[in-house]
Design a protein around this nucleic acid. Structure first.
Lengths: 225, 225
DNA sequence: AGCGATGAGATTGTCGACAATTTAAGTTAT
DNA sequence: ATAACTTAAATTGTCGACAATCTCATCGCT
């Protein structure tokens, strides 16, 4: 169904790549808890590779803002805070808003057609209350618009950086949230604006869409106190 | 005069830090031309350090999008294109717009006072036609607003990433441009909006300010063809 | 002559050992 | 008992050597 999503399946060629992907996965999914220390020697024995490749993987994680490192001391997984999640969503609003604006200008007719098709297929699933819309479907929608911006810096920042962090927060704070139907309508309007080649409306709607998400999350954080 | 700017003087503690800063400086300033290959062995003999530290420095440069790397092949300095600069300014508009919005909400009264003072001191220099306003003064202004956002992700993306890239483009495409007086008025209006705690206006004005810059640069690029 | 295979040379990726620094426990003196 | 100093263990930073991979020129085949 979401076959197109495999565009983002980065492939590991070197050992460091594998270590990096594995470490990132374990951290994002909470197997390695946030705040814990990453010992180079420990990980190198655990993964059966040299310390150099673990070290390189940790360096890459630092560049993604997934771990923090202090010279001569070591690296720790970043600790999650409600404020941190809010900050993330502020950046997301800014970047994805711009992505939607650029997508309205730069997406090809074919890409827009595909995006509409995706939405139609999802509309059936929403009516049938198929649950896995939320995760994969929402991702697919947002990724297409990000890619549609055709801005490599924007794409890299969001796909390689922010999205993994956001997923880390969502997984670990237990936010596999609902907001299915209303979010779907918002998606529909965004696509409409893009189809009409209306950059400003597309940006505005995307920003509102993400702001709603943020508010939704803030409310949940309040409740869990 | 711009004493406050030393906040950004990151200090190198390890050899890799030194190599990273030195390499970045040489690349940004064009000593190492864009598009050229970075040989690990060559650089390690040139800098008198082991290949490992050069390698780590190159990895960090890759994370900054200053070099591109292909596994088992090597790293090259990114090549500059007019389109690349435009893309950079699109991201900058998005992020700094959000920074201005957040700064209007989160800057302390003291920080706003200082910002106004900075502007006043610069206004004298503009009248006296002191040239070095452009570089340092403009940077100081933008950095204060970015820091004023109090959003660590935003700050890191702009200060550690985008700004070095933008400087690289400006230096190498010979854009130590004018736009002094008009930019100064724009700065004044942005500070006014922040002083009035008007996030939306602050964002809008910052975005327009950066758009003007972009248009100015685009015009120059046209001329140099 | 054109095209694919082959091999030498050079470059990157990975490894284990050593050096430098931090951390924490233990000791001593006030 | 507390504070400062000393020292030992552990961790990170750096190094040179070896292994794997790519590049490119040469050679052979159709």
């Amino acid at each position: 169904m979401w076959a197109k999503m495999e565009f983002f399946q980065e492939q590991a060629v070197t050992s460091s790549d594998k270590a990096f992907f594995r470490l990132r996965k374990e951290i994002v999914e909470g197997v390695i808890p946030s705040g814990s220390k990453l010992s180079e020697t420990e990980l190198s024995t655990k993964y059966q590779v040299s310390r150099a490749v673990v070290r390189e993987a940790i360096n890459r994680l630092e560049a993604c803002n997934i771990v923090e490192r202090r010279a001569n001391v070591g690296a720790r997984v970043v600790s999650l805070s409600p404020e941190g999640l809010i900050e993330l969503y502020q950046v997301r609003e800014s970047l994805e808003g711009m992505a939607a604006r650029l997508a309205a200008q730069h997406m090809s007719a074919q890409e827009i057609t595909d995006l509409n098709a995706l939405l139609n297929s999802q509309s059936h699933e929403v009516k049938n209350a198929e649950l896995y819309y939320q995760e994969a479907g929402d991702l697919d929608f947002h990724y297409r618009i990000i890619l549609g911006s055709k801005n490599s810096h924007l794409i890299s920042m969001l796909v390689n950086g922010l999205y993994h962090l956001v997923r880390m927060y969502r997984v670990q704070l237990g936010m596999a949230g609902p907001r299915v139907t209303s979010a779907f309508d918002e998606h529909k309007h965004i696509v409409q604006a893009i189809s009409n080649r209306d950059p400003e409306l597309a940006e505005m709607l995307m920003r509102r869409h993400i702001t709603y998400s943020k508010n939704n999350i803030e409310a949940k954080l309040q409740n869990s106190l």
